[in-house]
Design a protein around this nucleic acid. Structure first.
Lengths: 340, 340
DNA sequence: TATTCACACGCAAACGTTTTCGTAAGGTTA
DNA sequence: TAACCTTACGAAAACGTTTGCGTGTGAATA
């Protein structure tokens, strides 16, 4: 089991100094052609690869982007990561992904761990618990230590940094408008509790759309789901002999669960009830009927976030700080769950 | 923007040596109580955190596990990662995830990058392209440099290392048996081309099950799908006025696509045709009808893989090498797509 | 008073790089 | 022959830690 070879070992074998080896490998003119070739041949033979750790220590940067997401088993977040990786790889950055599992503590631990040497900057979407606790000291601290942070999707308004979001309200409005334009009058919304920022924003968009159509929103048509893992019973109770002709669900799970419940109640989609979801995931695409939904363009979010971060990382040190919020356009994907 | 504080800076401020600071923070008895308290207070004030990079360099280990998977936007792989993270976090390891995007080149690059200082060992599932090319030099090289590798799911038989797999053949057999026990006689299989190891194994399991039931397998009932992204048309052509009463699909996508095609052909599931899939993903669970499937217990795979790796990492240096192959039990999850 | 001994701390090496600067050997010029 | 310039290389510092060992100081002991 030959261990990894270092400059020192090569130097010793060839009876030259470490610096000579280093320079030779970099084709420095300081070193004679002869020595250069000898060193390179030897290095190739022993498959020399510079040690990244040592380089990071020396250069005081890691060329690594840390991504922290609330859930790893989640289609939307993984598409975002896809976008991040694309840009990162182009620009020679590595990507480290950690999941906070929606836990505040784990988010803090992960961030601190990565911040203490493993990454130059962060792309992150905060955990539910963090949104609930409203404790952002770990993020502020990271930034104050000179490491740029780009927030995406689940952002924190109070934090001064780059952000990439979609216009959740507008997306919800588009979804609701689509239903209204189809002639639906009794449109229910399945949403989250208010502390989830995106849930609240989407609810607001729904309300705005109704108002624009001069329809009075009714509490009866709004379900704020507490326990996501148990949404089926909540939705089932909610929909029980409720007279709705359309449902707007703020995420994919709520949408398909609603579809399932309606199915069990003997209602037809889209003939009896139309459904529009949010997030263009696998479920929406493959469901029968396939679900009309609002695409968040996750990959594009990742791309933009990575670009913002790398710009900051490679920007001038003393340029006056300037933070951008990129708003990605959502789009309506029409499928079978809403009638034509 | 205060930069990260180092031992050196603390030492300077407090007018002691670096080693004193280091020892004080570690509560060494060498240092007087007085000094210890002073140093700790100061460190806390300035939020001192040891630099991981420096530690890695010094200790020659990173306490980081590298995970390389073929696709990041893939439910099964993310569940495996979930399992890996669980164990890793318990044991104080960090997890770096990279995606090869099913590209051989990217797999090589990622592995080399992580191998040159960023991770102590690897958990990996090889890219399609790698299976096709049968070129494993990068993995062999990594191992020969003393870094343990655990392969999972898409493994390479020729490679001598720890492995975690499911018994794909047995799982497929279970699935097929289930259909047979339900009285199905004309069971089609939707599978992949042969160079995907798991696809082939599952096909073999299907064949074995038929044989045990004294049913002659027919080529007519076997579809090897070439282009996964375009499977709908292939499946549609295949199923066109074919008289089948059951379908075994080697993955979730094939299963739901088959369901969709059958639906369009006016066939009822499970009354006309039963379906069993492979992988217990979101789709199977939420589809209507929900799909009977073979669970691969992804999280469990991740757990076992991580344990194997950490055992190797923390084991004695000169213990005779011994490699294990862990086979995770699959299980049949009965849902609505097969009749009772 | 001379010796010994805790005590409390500092020095320096090591991890693997890169890079600036210094310098010996040999050749060229005046 | 003396002064200078190339050429080709080495020494050393730096990045931030940890840790074995050396050491100065004051107090206790003989």
């Amino acid at each position: 089991m030959k261990q990894k070879v270092t400059l020192k070992q090569i130097a010793k074998e060839l009876d030259v100094s470490i610096s000579t080896v280093s320079k030779a490998l970099k084709d420095s003119v300081e070193i004679s052609l002869d020595t250069r070739q000898k060193v390179k041949a030897f290095a190739k033979l022993y498959n020399y690869k510079p040690n990244n750790i040592a380089l990071s220590l020396k250069n005081r940067k890691t060329k690594t982007i840390g991504v922290i997401i609330p859930e790893i088993v989640h289609h939307f977040f993984t598409t975002v990561i896809g976008g991040v990786e694309k840009v990162a790889n182009e620009k020679g950055y590595n990507v480290i992904i950690c999941s906070s599992n929606n836990s505040f503590d784990k988010e803090v631990i992960n961030l601190e761990m990565l911040a203490s040497g493993s990454a130059d900057g962060f792309i992150l979407s905060v955990a539910k618990e963090t949104q609930q606790k409203k404790d952002y000291h770990h993020i502020e601290e990271t930034m104050s230590q000179g490491m740029p942070v780009v927030l995406f999707d689940r952002i924190i308004d109070e934090l001064v940094c780059d952000k990439v979001i979609i216009d959740d309200g507008k997306g919800a409005q588009t979804a609701t408008n689509h239903l209204l334009s189809l002639g639906c009058k009794k449109i229910a919304i399945l949403t989250t509790v208010d502390y989830i920022s995106v849930g609240k924003l989407r609810t607001n968009g729904y309300l705005r759309a109704l108002r624009a159509y001069d329809i009075t929103a009714s509490e009866d048509y709004i379900l704020k789901i507490e326990d996501i893992d148990n949404c089926e019973s909540e939705i089932s109770d909610f929909l029980e002999d409720k007279d709705v002709d359309a449902i707007f669900a703020v995420n994919e799970l709520f949408a398909v669960t609603a579809a399932r419940v309606l199915n069990e109640q003997g209602k037809k989609i889209p003939d009896d009830v139309s459904i529009v979801g949010f997030t263009d995931g696998i479920l929406s695409k493959h469901f029968i009927p396939s679900l009309t939904t609002i695409s968040q363009h996750g990959e594009e979010m990742g791309v933009r976030a990575a670009k913002l971060l790398i710009d900051k990382l490679e920007g001038e040190e003393d340029v006056p700080e300037e933070y951008k919020t990129v708003i990605i356009d959502t789009s309506l994907i029409q499928r079978q769950s809403t009638k034509k």
